[in-house]
């Protein structure tokens, strides 16, 4: 895997959430969801594992497995991804 400096945006994340795990009925991912817990958006830990896998493949970065429990909201996950604290191994 190669490192990348590309920043993952909320739009990128919601697109990948839809592709990897689908969209819960009654939830609008295009709304103001940056601080909405993933659980409230209808995503469980497996869904997050799935989308984190997609992020790693698309962006060539490595995200620790703990992110599934540590990042409770899209904002927290984006901060973790974009912080540069997760370089490729």
């Amino acid at each position: 895997m190669s490192t990348t400096t590309a920043t993952v945006t909320l739009a990128d994340l919601t697109r990948m959430l839809r592709e990897s795990a689908g969209e819960e009925e009654g939830v609008d991912l295009d709304g103001d969801v940056i601080d909405t817990p993933f659980m409230d958006l209808g995503y469980d830990s497996l869904a997050l594992l799935q989308v984190i896998g997609q992020i790693q493949r698309e962006y060539g970065i490595e995200i620790p497995d703990d992110a599934v429990v540590d990042a409770e909201t899209p904002g927290a996950l984006l901060a973790l991804i974009n912080s540069g604290q997760a370089p490729a191994a």
């Binding site: 839809r18 592709e19 990897s20 795990a21 689908g22 969209e23 819960e24 009925e25 209808g42 497996l46 869904a47 799935q50």
Partner: peptide, 8 residues
Amino acid sequence: IPSRLMPQ
């Protein structure tokens, strides 16, 4: 099938 269930 709901969207959430499609990938799984």
